[in-house]
């Protein structure tokens, strides 16, 4: 039996001029129905690649899925043809909020036209009913003056307004599984909080399951029940978000958490981390790890349960008891 959403041994790479470069190796990732899972990782870790893999929208022919399974409600998405993904999944059961509100909306269509297209495709509403639905969606995402908003082009809107529109479009699909790719990353801090709150409310209201991608651990604790830490394409820690954050095991997670500086000396602490050469067959974090041993360079650690639901991919951390 697989979980409602479950990834098994996923490996994704890209063709580059220097040959194939592997960017994603996720042994296991599970999300229960109706739950929000937070995925944290620095820029370039492979978060967006994961999102696009789930939707079957990786750039072709640059990307290759080497192996793996992505289960959603008993079906392996990686076994589906592009046609099946289009007719049964994209916009129907899975939808996504993209990371950059500046580039996600089509610049030459009005907000109303873009909403209308999706409403027509997914709700099969036309004319007056379609417009009615669009207005309703804008109210749900708490955009005032919805009537005039529909007439606007993306460049006439602020970042926060755009992100609300994007959320409205994604929700319009009525999908049960939502991927939110750093939905607040490019927004001002003051606006971030509003968007986060909105997403949390909507997730409850629409009873969606959600993969919430963030580049900031702080956000995850607020919104997610479970969380995982992605480092260079590998899930290095996974478990209830409270544990992952309060009692981080993996040295990388610990670094991430203490990277939220409380004072100056702490902020500078990691500036003098010794950088070793990469270990080709070893742990991906080896080069930056302060606890690394010889074994870490020799082979790659796998996710291992350390404390009930908490799992960590680190030889050193797995040995140590908290």
């Amino acid at each position: 039996m697989t979980e409602y959403f479950e990834i098994k041994n996923l490996a994704v790479g890209f063709h580059t001029f220097e040959g194939v470069r592997d960017v994603l190796r996720i042994e296991s990732l599970r999300i229960k129905r109706g739950e929000t899972y937070g995925l944290v990782g620095e820029s370039g870790a492979g978060k967006t690649v994961l999102a696009l893999t789930i939707l079957g929208l990786l750039p072709k022919p640059a990307a290759i899925v080497h192996s793996g399974e992505i289960w959603l409600d008993g079906q392996d998405l990686l076994k589906k043809t592009d046609r099946q993904m289009y007719t049964q999944y994209r916009g129907k059961r899975i939808t996504m909020i993209f990371q950059d509100p500046m580039s996600t909306l089509n610049p030459v269509f009005t907000v109303g036209q873009q909403l209308a297209r999706v409403i027509e495709a997914q709700q099969h509403l036309k004319g007056q009913a379609n417009t009615q639905k669009a207005l309703e969606m804008l109210e749900i995402v708490k955009l005032p003056d919805a009537g005039r908003m529909l007439e606007k082009y993306p460049h006439e809107l602020s970042g926060g307004q755009r992100q609300r529109i994007i959320i409205a479009i994604a929700l319009t699909c009525g999908a049960e599984f939502l991927i939110a790719d750093e939905p607040t990353r490019n927004l001002d801090v003051t606006i971030q909080a509003g968007i986060l709150k909105l997403m949390d409310e909507l997730q409850q209201e629409f009873k969606m399951s959600m993969l919430f991608i963030a580049n900031n651990v702080g956000l995850v604790n607020v919104v997610c029940k479970n969380a995982g830490i992605l480092y260079r394409g590998k899930l290095v820690e996974d478990g209830p978000s409270e544990k992952v954050i309060r009692r981080a095991r993996h040295p990388y997670t610990q670094t991430l958490i203490s990277a939220i500086p409380r004072d100056k000396s702490e902020a500078l602490k990691f500036a003098n981390t010794v950088i070793k050469p990469d270990a080709e067959h070893g742990c991906p974090y080896y080069a930056r790890c302060t606890l690394a041993e010889d074994a870490c360079a020799a082979s790659e650690p796998m996710l291992e349960a350390v404390d009930g639901a908490q799992k960590v991919a680190c030889f050193v951390a797995a040995r140590r008891q908290p």
């Binding site: 696009l52 939707l55 929208l57 750039p59 289009y86 999944y89 994209r90 916009g91 129907k92 899975i94 939808t95 996504m96 993209f98 950059d100 580039s103 996600t104 909306l105 089509n106 610049p107 030459v108 269509f109 297209r117 999706v118 495709a121 997914q122 994007i166 479009i169 994604a170 319009t172 699909c173």
Partner: peptide, 29 residues
């Protein structure tokens, strides 16, 4: 076709016909 709004349009389940002949083509006008 490499732009985010094209991938986004596909993720909303819009047909390839709309994505190509309307969303993309109008941007190339």
């Amino acid at each position: 076709l490499n732009e985010d709004y094209i991938t986004a349009a596909r993720s909303y389940g819009l047909s390839e016909r709309i994505v190509l002949w309307s969303y993309a083509l109008k941007n190339s006008i």
